[in-house]
Design a protein around this nucleic acid. Structure first.
Lengths: 215, 215
DNA sequence: GTCTATAGAAGGATAGAC
DNA sequence: GTCTATCCTTCTATAGAC
């Protein structure tokens, strides 16, 4: 090691840290927070257990970083779908819910860890913070939908919180189950529930003739 | 003490344990899980810190007991309201949501601890278990509503999970805020959201004249 | 006299203050 | 970086019930 870190050293350290976070994420996705011991994570990253503490002051700090990275990706994806320039607010809401749920079901272990798995209080605090971000994203789209006359008058923040909680809770059981029975049906039901929750009329109303071609 | 515990002793011990659980519940409601130290709880119960371990093998076990008692009361109350002999399934659902939320808002500290506050993994596992019970209660009422033709066809278990998650998440922020601004409006919005989520038509449709006095 | 719940202090670990 | 304070837990002596 050098007295003053060279750019090469800095990059090498950052890369090692990245590998550590990635490995820890993989371990958490596979065995959950409680089973993800420091030694298991270090083994997965190919370093000694003690070396973990060169990059993070505690196991909890590493867990928080793992959570932030993974949850941040989902917030980004959901934000992009919800704020996409094309489509009505209601269409974007439906698509956002579907994309979020599909991604969760494609990486069940990680999604379960992020959404529901019992974890130390530091991770729990992070969970609360990220749920706030999901609520903010939904709030925007709901307000757009109300402004466009597509959604009935409602308290957007309350419905946004409801959607956040509802989607997470609906996914808990399917994420726990290891068999993928009827993912498409689940997604359809979930999206339908979300649209009902927001007050969007059913897409194909049986009684009313579709005289308005552009909903 | 005696070779064999007398009934008096057994009762005295059970009472001491009850006092401990009650005191711990009060402390948790006031300062949260993380700040509820063994010494603080023991002081509140009027016993020494070490004596806690005569009743519970660990702090986590006491925390789990506190959670079970408090959450169990709410499950019981919700179950009674949802399964009440009077009223349509939709009316009972609305009333259940309102009662649940009102009780939470009347004991904010405890409700926050039960619903959202970061806690040790043992309590987190208990949370998952109790959410399953809430879902089961809602599932029954939703199926009743569908059978009675009051709710559209839907996957009852998914909507029940959605309601469970939605109600909890909506309450998180109001429970954290210490000022009680517009509890009635919050309750009205929450109930309206829950009914939308279940697919119940709005209670006072603007077009249709209210020719049916008893809904 | 014997046994056990309790109180109080000590132990080991950890987090925060300086 | 060190040091203190506090945390959970264990241990020991006491006191009270049989």
């Amino acid at each position: 090691m050098a007295y003053r870190k060279t750019p090469t050293e800095v990059r090498r350290l950052a890369a090692a840290r990245e590998r550590l976070v990635d490995s820890a994420t993989a371990v958490v996705a596979e065995v959950g927070w409680t089973q993800a011991s420091v030694t298991a994570v270090a083994d997965s990253a190919g370093i000694a257990a003690g070396s973990v503490y060169q990059h993070f002051p505690s196991k909890a700090a590493l867990a928080v970083e793992v959570f932030r990275r993974a949850a941040g990706r989902e917030v980004d994806v959901l934000g992009e779908v919800l704020h996409h320039p094309d489509g009505s607010p209601v269409e974007r809401l439906a698509r956002g819910v579907e994309v979020f749920a599909r991604r969760a079901l494609e990486n069940r272990g990680l999604a379960y860890a992020l959404l529901a798995a019992p974890a130390e209080p530091a991770v729990g605090a992070e969970r609360l913070d990220f749920r706030r971000r999901y609520r903010a994203l939904f709030t925007d789209v709901l307000h757009e939908g109300m402004a466009a006359g597509l959604l009935p008058a409602q308290n957007g923040e309350i419905t946004a919180a409801a959607l956040t909680g509802a989607i997470g809770e609906v996914l808990v059981d399917p994420l726990g189950a290891h068999d993928e029975n009827d993912v498409d049906e689940l997604l359809a039901e979930l999206v339908a529930m979300a649209l009902r929750c927001a007050g969007a009329p059913p897409e194909t109303p049986p009684q009313t003739p579709p005289d308005t071609p552009r909903a």
